[in-house]
């Protein structure tokens, strides 16, 4: 794992991608610190990470697109398969290297509240809480991008798909709020989600019985519950989605509350996508 990690770090710093990523994060951090803290003379540093989370939509795809797709295109994945290292270690090595690339600018941003403290009061719990949230959110999005990158040979496709996924993540709460309150709309939305999930299962396994089966079971359960009691279906998505959305979860950190369930949730999502990436690589051996 160490060898993969070192090699990945080398790749980030011999090419420009590592520098570009860091520069981009710090550029926006600078702009927002000036706007939110310096010119308005406020000590609320938590505004900075919370205003700049949208940059993840653009920079996560750039960071993660080549992680695995490029190995496949250059056929270096054959080397990884033939080396005496497990795929889990390969994926973890790659993930931690990307995480360090994110940690570097976030680490530099940790100095900003200290600098601001010299000029007035700063609530450190809120400032560092939001930075922690920013980092965890980035980590979970990186794991998603890495997974997307493991599905294709083309960096461009990986970047495009990852961009769409990031957009979806960012706007999911707003989208959910657009759904009408009536229970039947919740049922329709559940059908749409189940269809997406089974489509995804089909893409991964190419097995029609499994994907159709998952859809059928999900719809049957939803249908029975719907017949039985409609109250939970009222306004279902606007209530549930903010709890699922990584970006919405992030907003709790800003208030200076270290929401443990939020941390656990974000870390679990990250672990889940790392697991999926490992499976996706293992699966290529079977195809």
């Amino acid at each position: 794992m160490k060898a993969i990690f070192k090699h990945e770090m080398n790749m980030y710093f011999t090419s420009i991608s590592g520098y570009v990523f860091g520069t981009f994060v710090l550029l926006f951090a600078g702009i927002y610190t000036v706007a939110a803290n310096v010119s308005s003379q406020l000590g609320n540093f938590e505004y900075v990470p919370s205003s700049m989370v949208f940059i993840f939509i653009a920079i996560i795809p750039v960071l993660t697109m080549r992680m695995i797709a490029e190995e496949r295109r250059q056929k270096t994945d054959q080397l990884l398969y033939s080396l005496p290292i497990s795929m889990t270690k390969v994926v973890l090595g790659k993930f931690f290297a990307a995480l360090v690339i994110l940690a570097i600018p976030v680490g530099i941003m940790c100095i900003y509240p200290l600098v601001l403290r010299a000029f007035g009061p700063v609530t450190f719990s809120m400032a560092y809480g939001s930075l922690l949230g920013f980092f965890l959110l980035g980590a979970s999005l990186i794991s998603m991008g890495m997974f997307i990158s493991s599905l294709t040979e083309s960096q461009a496709v990986a970047a495009g798909a990852c961009f769409v996924l990031m957009l979806f993540n960012y706007f999911i709460t707003a989208l959910a709020k657009l759904l009408p309150v009536q229970p039947k709309w919740s049922l329709i939305a559940i059908a749409a989600v189940a269809a997406l999930v089974s489509l995804f299962i089909w893409v991964m396994t190419k097995s029609w019985p499994t994907s159709v089966g998952v859809f059928a079971v999900a719809m049957a359960v939803a249908g029975i519950l719907y017949k039985h009691n409609r109250t939970p279906f009222i306004n279902l998505f606007p209530r549930v989605v903010p709890n699922i959305s990584l970006f919405s979860r992030f907003s709790t950190y800003i208030n200076g509350v270290l929401d443990l369930s939020g941390v656990v949730y974000t870390v679990s999502v990250t672990a889940f996508f790392i697991f999926l990436t490992v499976q996706s690589l293992e699966k290529r051996r079977w195809s």
Binding site: A3, K6, H7, K75, T76, L83
Partner: peptide, 28 residues
């Protein structure tokens, strides 16, 4: 086993020295 696939699995942006260093570390 040492394996050379049909297309040599090389990282084009590294030098032979770096590449072999990586493989040696990865092979333990």
């Amino acid at each position: 086993i040492g394996y050379l696939p049909e297309l040599p699995p090389l990282y084009l942006d590294s030098t032979p020295q770096e590449y072999l260093q990586f493989v040696a570390e990865a092979k333990g």
